[in-house]
Design a protein around this nucleic acid. Structure first.
Lengths: 245, 245
DNA sequence: CGGCAAGTTGAGCCAGGTCAACTCCGGTGG
DNA sequence: CCACCGGAGTTGACCTGGCTCAACTTGCCG
């Protein structure tokens, strides 16, 4: 089941849709553009219809972190956040969003059961994604984080080529953003991609498209299975034999 | 505003309370005890009335992570999680919980506005906590993570001694759990506590009680301000002068 | 009082951060 | 059309914060 803002809108009655369009602000954002903090005070609910929005935290000395990624269908509820926190919503891509006022949002959620379920499920999956992401960051090494991220992209991606058994995955952000999301350096991201490619587990079709060649192995890396390191050598041996034959 | 399960229960009508007690399972857990996965299938909603519950992720090679901490008042919604994921709910303390079936939970949430708000706010703050925690894990160093955690405890704690200007903070988990939550080693946690104490920023009253002596400095460390390192030396100088005078 | 888990301390090492140099690529203007 | 530019990405060499391992102390519970 894919939960998205489209679903949310589809579930509304004509009356509610009218309310919504009278009490919301559609907007388009370019890469790097932030959602203005002042606007967030009046319209703290942001529904994403396309693109990728990042929630960024800034440390005192300039270190920057992408604490969360929001994509098509996510509904960001910033009530009580905008002012106190040093967190900002910044588009990583050309994105289309829709800002809602709390009033109209509340009234829809309280009166429309289906909309309520969609919104509730979205928030719940945001929570679980954030918790899973915490687990990734806490104990995994660079290679494992990247493997997890590739699966996260496959799971959430809309552009994924589903025909090819889901093996073609679109990475919707730049290397530099990816690094900030995974809590590592762009250099390390680059090296990790290369390692996965050298081991024959993935192949870069373009800079933003990954072909998964050995999904089970990638899965095991993501789960922290260290025995996969040996498999590299096995593959090499087989390759040598083949090339001799 | 403190959102808790008490609030949730208080907001119910007598009829709903009766429903609730007929369709819920109260339970008491000892430290280290897990909430059984089979039970979670039938009763995937867990409300915490006291204690600390951890959500733990296990990696293939035995590495363990505490991905999230839940305390008094949190309502954990595990629908759709219990089976697929390798995550477990484990008590870190003597805890009292209440398991709910989805049916009764849904019916209460859909009919009782106040309960709906309490539940929604709790889930929303879980999301933001998880996102903040991700940010902590991503780029902060050991000392900074610990400083953040002390503030998190102060903010969430129920046992905090509020009379003393909130400077006495209870750390409700063992060092070893703390380490797993912050993605570091128990040894490093120990060393970090010592460093903070040596710099005169905190003082350990007991192993689980921290007295914050310089809240602003601790705050700056938590925010990644590196200039605090120099302040140590300033303090030392002042101390020397005083001891000579 | 004994036994075991939790916590602390010290010494050495390594994954990944840092710094610097270089390539690649899309956009811009002459 | 090419020359130029700037930001993104990559690669190499080096360095360090925190992990690892081992020894020890402390505190809890029967």
């Amino acid at each position: 089941m894919h939960i998205n803002a489209n679903g949310f809108c589809k579930s509304l009655t004509p009356k509610q849709l009218e309310d919504l369009s009278n009490n919301s602000h559609a907007a388009s954002l370019k890469r790097g553009e932030a959602i203005d903090g002042h606007h967030l005070l009046a319209w703290p609910i942001v529904a994403i219809s396309s693109g990728v929005i990042s929630m960024q935290h800034l440390l005192e000395d300039g270190r920057k972190t992408i604490a969360a990624l929001f994509m098509q269908g996510d509904i960001i509820d910033m009530r009580g956040i905008s002012s106190r926190n040093r967190s900002h919503l910044i588009a990583l891509n050309k994105s289309n969003i829709c800002r809602l006022s709390p009033d109209v949002f509340e009234s829809i959620v309280e009166t429309n059961r289906e909309a309520q379920h969609i919104v509730w499920n979205n928030l719940r999956s945001q929570t679980h994604r954030a918790i899973d992401h915490s687990a990734d960051l806490a104990k995994k090494q660079a290679l494992e984080k990247l493997a997890s991220f590739i699966f996260e992209c496959r799971h959430r991606g809309t552009k994924t080529n589903k025909t090819k058994e889901n093996v073609l995955v679109d990475i919707p952000v730049r290397r530099i953003d990816l690094a900030e999301y995974l809590g590592m350096q762009p250099e390390t991201v680059s090296r990790s991609f290369r390692t996965l490619e050298e081991r024959g587990i993935i192949e870069m079709q373009t800079i933003s498209t990954v072909l998964i060649k050995q999904a089970p192995v990638l899965r095991r890396i993501a789960n922290g299975d260290k025995t996969t390191e040996k498999m590299r050598r096995v593959d090499d041996d087989r390759f040598k034999v083949l090339s001799f034959g």
